Structure formats: C-alpha cells, structure tokens
Simulated assay, not measured.
Amino acid sequence: MKVALGADHGGYELKEEIKSVLDEAGVEYEDLGCDCSDSVDYPDYAVPVAEKVTAGEADRGILVCGTGIGMSIAANKVNGIRCALVHDVFSAKMTRAHNDSNVLAMGARVIGSGLAGEIVKAWLSTEHEGGRHADRIQKVAAIEQ
C-alpha cells in the first residue's frame, strides 16, 4: 500500500509524527508537503493528495490541518474522493468498512499524536465490507457524474 500525505502549517508537525507511524507499520508514503509551520493554503496540499489517489499513484491519502475541516472539504471536491474527517478510532474503522473512504483527514488542534497514530493504524487496517455499503457508494458516485 502507498499513501499520499499532505498538511498545511497547522498540521505540519502531526504529519511528521504520522510518518513515523507509517514507517513503523512498513507503509510506503509520499509526502506532498508542506514542509514547515509557515502559513500556507490547505487546498494547495489537499488537492494534490486527492489527485494522487484518483490517478492510482497512491492507494490512499492522509491530510492534516488545524481542524481537518478545510482539508476534507477541499479533497472532497475531487471526483472519486471519499474523504472522511475523523477524530476517533471507531469512526476511522467505520468510514473504511462502510464508506470505503480513500482519504483520511484529521485536525492537529483537535487530537494529539497518540490518538492520531491509533486512528491511522485503524483506518489503514480496516477493509471495506462491500455488500449493501457498495451500493450506497455507487449512489454517491453517481452524484459526481
């Protein structure tokens, strides 16, 4: 599995900590920035991560900003992206199992690094259940068309 990572200034430090979680799990990743805590615009990082996922250059994406809200809004503007804003482990599992989310957004000012690491591990290890959930995802995809 390959993951595309992106963060704005508010999520930069947490993104760096998430890289350690991915390293420990043996997950390949591409860091698309940002690379500092200077003020930047979240769409400049959310969209490239989302486009890597839709192009098949990454299997999934992880985005971090101050609240996760801006990143999730921007990523969900890209057709084919199902970005979920998650701040707890249960939601991380459910968004994969039921919604087949392909991008995870988190807020660095909302959760700490320990919880973020647990969320990432749960999200990466949970598979989509398919079945009735797949039908619902198809209905959402039809809206994009």
Rank of each mutant, 00 (worst) to 15 (best):
K2P: 06
K2L: 11
L5R: 14
G6R: 03
A7V: 08
A7W: 06
A7D: 09
G10A: 10
G11D: 12
G11M: 10
K15S: 02
E17L: 05
E17S: 11
E17P: 03
I18Q: 09
I18L: 14
V21Y: 15
V21C: 13
V21I: 07
G26H: 02
Y29D: 03
Y29A: 02
D31T: 02
D31V: 00
G33Q: 03
C34T: 15
C34L: 05
C34G: 05
D35F: 14
S37Q: 10
S37T: 14
D38V: 13
D41Q: 01
Y45Q: 14
A46Q: 04
V47H: 00
P48K: 03
V49F: 08
E51S: 05
V53L: 11
A55S: 15
D59R: 09
D59L: 04
D59A: 12
R60Q: 08
R60I: 10
G61H: 15
G61L: 14
I62S: 04
L63N: 08
L63Q: 07
V64G: 06
G66V: 15
G66A: 13
G66T: 15
T67K: 14
G68A: 09
I69S: 13
G70I: 04
G70H: 06
G70P: 05
M71G: 08
M71T: 07
S72R: 13
I73Q: 09
A75S: 14
A75W: 00
A75C: 06
V78W: 08
G80E: 03
G80D: 02
I81F: 02
I81M: 03
C83V: 07
C83L: 10
C83Q: 08
A84N: 06
L85E: 10
V86Q: 06
H87G: 00
H87C: 01
D88G: 05
S91Y: 13
K93C: 02
K93G: 06
M94H: 03
T95H: 02
R96D: 05
D100A: 11
D100K: 03
V103M: 01
A105E: 07
M106D: 03
M106W: 01
G107K: 00
G107A: 01
A108L: 01
A108W: 00
R109K: 15
V110D: 05
I111P: 01
G112Q: 10
S113E: 10
S113Y: 03
L115P: 01
A116K: 04
A116Y: 03
G117E: 07
I119C: 03
V120R: 12
V120C: 14
A122I: 00
S125T: 09
T126E: 15
E127Q: 12
E127V: 08
E127K: 07
H128S: 12
G131D: 13
G131F: 12
R132E: 13
R132C: 09
R136K: 12
Q138L: 11
K139S: 12
A142R: 15
I143H: 13
I143W: 15
I143F: 15
